[in-house]
């Protein structure tokens, strides 16, 4: 066992998968430059020396290198691509959505696209174009699997599962959760370290995780919001409200079995999402709950999400934009009184 942060855990996952399977390689911007940073958040630091020729630095060309990853995957390789900030997925999305996600279907099942796309998301004092919660744009795309990792344990296990999966898998990571060090450390970072087993393991790409058990209300979140939900639960506990916290983690498909089992206990649910409320993943989850387990609900579904605005720069407004622990506590408290 060793204690690791998400950046280190992802690095180890990549290292182990590349050592295990020579078809695996990494492609992206500034990921293997000598004297560089190992990607924007240090995940690939040191890997270029370990795996010569398999950590491929590209020009700044997201559409291009994503297409290259798709093509290489079709021909039998297993690329792990990454964008430096999730916001740049808008440039890559033609290749992801029109090609990676559809080639299997369009070919009548002849083609496999076993690729991984990693993307850091979240509001972190950088303004509107380096901050968006991008997972919402991909969860509704048939042919893609979408996960979001909030602990180092999951980051390692889900990245490994994604590399071994025969489909395109998108992994969303949060800038405040990496635990990047040195010059790439993030102010305001939240501890997402885990005890990492020495043995090889994978975490399935389609299961939510119950992070805390409780019987009065269920709080659903992912990425940074999974951490905030747990912090909220601690405060609620002091008031005698026992919240069950679920890290949704798998955003496509969504694990309604785990969510439904919790709702049958609590009858109440708060869904927390960083990102504008309109059109968010929380809307899909709310609808899914109505279809899958409405009978368990004793009160309407409540959402805590960001305002329907671009992400503002100034910290006062960014803090108002991002759901925080007090807002989650308040929503849960009101719901329990309902």
């Amino acid at each position: 066992m060793k204690r690791q942060g998400i950046a280190e855990a992802l690095r180890d996952a990549i290292t182990e998968e590349m050592a295990r399977d020579t078809r695996v390689f990494c492609i992206g911007e500034d990921i293997g430059v000598p004297g560089g940073w190992g990607g924007a958040f240090t995940v690939t630091l040191g890997l270029a020396e370990k795996f010569p020729g398999r950590i491929i630095d590209t020009p700044i060309a997201e559409l291009g290198f994503t297409g290259i990853a798709v093509g290489a995957a079709m021909m039998g390789l297993r690329p792990i691509a990454d964008v430096q900030y999730g916001d740049f997925l808008f440039l890559a999305s033609d290749q992801l959505i029109n090609n990676a996600a559809k080639l299997r279907y369009m070919s009548g099942g002849a083609i496999k696209v076993p690729m991984v796309m990693r993307a850091p998301v979240g509001a972190t004092g950088r303004g509107s174009q380096h901050a968006q919660s991008m997972e919402r744009y991909f969860t509704g795309v048939p042919g893609l699997k979408v996960v979001a990792v909030s602990t180092a344990f999951d980051a390692k296990g889900m990245l490994k599962a994604a590399v071994r999966d025969d489909n395109p898998v998108m992994i969303f990571e949060h800038k405040l959760l990496y635990g990047s060090k040195g010059a790439r450390a993030e102010p305001g970072a939240v501890d997402a370290t885990s005890e990492i087993p020495d043995e090889d393991y994978v975490v399935p790409l389609d299961r939510a995780a119950v992070r805390r058990e409780g019987r009065h209300v269920t709080i659903l979140g992912w990425l940074l919001m999974a951490h905030f939900a747990r912090q909220a639960a601690e405060i609620l506990a002091q008031e005698g409200i026992e919240a069950e916290v679920i890290d949704v983690r798998s955003l496509s498909p969504i694990d309604y079995e785990t969510i439904g089992a919790s709702l049958r206990k609590t009858g109440r649910v708060v869904i927390v999402e960083e990102g504008p409320k309109t059109g968010g993943v929380s809307a899909e989850i709310a609808a899914g709950i109505m279809e899958n387990c409405a009978d368990a609900l004793m009160a309407p579904v409540v959402r805590v999400a960001s305002a329907d605005v671009p992400v503002p720069f100034t910290p006062v407004l960014e803090n108002a934009y991002r759901p925080d622990v007090p807002r989650i506590v308040e929503a849960a408290r009101q719901l329990v009184q309902h």
Binding site: G125, Q129, V316
Partner: peptide, 10 residues
Amino acid sequence: CCKGKGGSMH
């Protein structure tokens, strides 16, 4: 110049 909404990059 952008009411604090833009920041350094904008």
